Amino acid sequence: MQIEDEPPKPRGRVVGADLSPLSIGDLHAYVADLEAEIVRVRAEIEVKGAARGGAEALFGRKD
């Protein structure tokens, strides 16, 4: 059973792995999984960007 806040478990695919043994259906599923992961990563980037912006507003920007 998966807890709501846990990210979905990978289906055992490795980015860059040989795709030739996969069926068309498996390839479509793989693309959907990758697109969902991209959405998840972009959301995390937004969260971290907002936190960084808040810290820079409070403490000033450090280069």
Rank of each mutant, 00 (worst) to 15 (best):
residue 1 M to R: 11
residue 2 Q to N: 09
residue 3 I to A: 12
residue 3 I to V: 06
residue 3 I to T: 07
residue 3 I to S: 09
residue 4 E to N: 08
residue 4 E to H: 07
residue 8 P to K: 04
residue 9 K to L: 11
residue 10 P to I: 01
residue 11 R to H: 09
residue 13 R to K: 07
residue 13 R to G: 00
residue 16 G to P: 01
residue 16 G to N: 05
residue 18 D to K: 02
residue 18 D to M: 00
residue 20 S to W: 05
residue 20 S to R: 13
residue 20 S to M: 06
residue 21 P to H: 03
residue 22 L to E: 03
residue 23 S to E: 05
residue 24 I to C: 12
residue 25 G to P: 00
residue 27 L to S: 10
residue 27 L to E: 04
residue 29 A to V: 03
residue 30 Y to G: 03
residue 31 V to W: 07
residue 32 A to G: 07
residue 33 D to S: 15
residue 35 E to Q: 14
residue 36 A to H: 07
residue 36 A to K: 09
residue 36 A to I: 03
residue 36 A to E: 13
residue 36 A to D: 14
residue 37 E to S: 14
residue 37 E to R: 15
residue 37 E to M: 10
residue 39 V to D: 15
residue 39 V to W: 05
residue 40 R to Q: 12
residue 40 R to M: 10
residue 41 V to N: 08
residue 42 R to K: 15
residue 43 A to C: 08
residue 43 A to V: 06
residue 43 A to K: 12
residue 44 E to S: 12
residue 45 I to V: 15
residue 45 I to H: 09
residue 47 V to C: 05
residue 47 V to M: 06
residue 47 V to L: 08
residue 50 A to V: 02
residue 50 A to R: 06
residue 51 A to I: 02
residue 51 A to P: 00
residue 52 R to I: 12
residue 52 R to G: 02
residue 53 G to R: 08
residue 53 G to C: 01
residue 54 G to V: 02
residue 55 A to Y: 10
residue 55 A to L: 15
residue 55 A to K: 08
residue 56 E to W: 01
residue 57 A to N: 09
residue 60 G to V: 03
residue 62 K to L: 11
residue 62 K to Y: 08
residue 63 D to S: 13
residue 63 D to R: 11
